[in-house]
């Protein structure tokens, strides 16, 4: 019994036969993806370590609660679920392209590659919208020096600390410089023609008038949060987005190679398989990014 097993094993590794029963290119693609998994894993674990080491962390349901064309409605998890389903769908079209490749059906591969490319582009568009929304959305934050400030969510600014009490906000208003008060008053009603009108009005108001107006306004102020939040969010989703981008480029190249008949001449569609491995890996990483940044 044991002897038989040893013999079978010796046969596998004694040459003349591929021990992995896979081509060199495919095995190396797997090893590349494994190393990439360690890179992403290290990033995500580093993020987890920092998050575990602090007392407060921004609530993802508050930071990521917007959807295009839905205005200021509070819709946590909605947009990111759309992005997740886009990527799952494009993974399915990719695996269908690989399937058509095995059947040597060039038209089928072309059709599914186009659909995969569209899915990837749609995902990138969603990410561009989300980044723009975070980087340009203005929030009033209570700085550690006791004054208020208007901030965006960037790699170094985080207006998503714990919510400040009304008293702390009123006290901070007294110390906040005039230009910032005007800016805060403007963020309260920033919609079209009304905004220009409001700017004109608040610019002529005195500090006391502005302070009185803002302390009675429906103004929610958070303490300033740790810059690590934005650094990790933009760093990791950016690294993932770059993978999606390069995946889309690879898929476009594969589409044209298919269309030009290169794989038919070669006699097999293994390149589609290897591009597919990369594309599925991008989806796989997103599953974990979705978990770490949005769900928990």
């Amino acid at each position: 019994m044991a002897t038989a097993a040893i013999q079978a094993n010796t046969k596998t590794w004694s040459g003349g036969k591929s021990p992995f029963n896979a081509s060199y290119g495919k095995v190396m693609m797997w090893y590349f993806l494994m190393s990439d998994a360690f890179t992403f894993g290290a990033f995500l674990i580093s993020y987890g370590t920092i998050r575990f080491s602090v007392n407060t962390w921004p609530d993802p349901n508050k930071v990521f609660n917007s959807v295009p064309f839905m205005g200021h409605n509070n819709l946590p998890l909605v947009f990111v679920s759309i992005m997740t389903f886009i990527l799952i769908a494009s993974s399915v079209t990719m695996v269908l392209a690989v399937h058509e490749g095995h059947k040597m059906n060039r038209k089928g591969v072309e059709k599914y590659m186009i659909l995969t490319i569209i899915g990837g582009a749609a995902f990138l568009g969603c990410q561009a919208w989300e980044w723009t929304h975070l980087l340009t959305g203005e929030h009033v934050a209570l700085l550690n020096n006791g004054t208020l400030s208007v901030m965006n969510t960037t790699a170094s600014a985080n207006p998503w600390g714990l919510q400040a009490s009304h008293e702390a906000m009123v006290a901070a208003l007294q110390k906040t410089p005039h230009e910032t008060l005007v800016h805060i008053a403007n963020t309260l009603h920033h919609s079209g023609a009304e905004a220009a009108h409001a700017t004109h009005n608040v610019a002529t108001m005195s500090n006391t008038e502005l302070t009185n107006m803002l302390s009675t306004a429906d103004l929610h102020v958070n303490n300033v949060g740790r810059p690590a939040f934005g650094s990790y969010f933009f760093g990791i989703t950016g690294f993932h987005g770059f993978h999606v981008f390069s995946g889309v480029i690879i898929n476009i190249i594969m589409y044209f190679k298919t269309k030009l008949g290169h794989f038919d001449q070669r006699g097999h569609y293994e390149m589609i398989e290897k591009a597919g491995l990369y594309w599925h890996f991008v989806d796989l990483v997103w599953v974990f990014v979705f978990l770490c940044f949005y769900l928990v």
Binding site: V54, N55, L143, N144, S149, A157, G161, T180
Partner: peptide, 16 residues
């Protein structure tokens, strides 16, 4: 452990 209660009084380099 003041982090939970109020922002630290020390000036942080968080830019506005």
């Amino acid at each position: 452990s003041i982090e939970n209660v109020q922002p630290a009084p020390v000036k942080h380099d968080s830019k506005p």
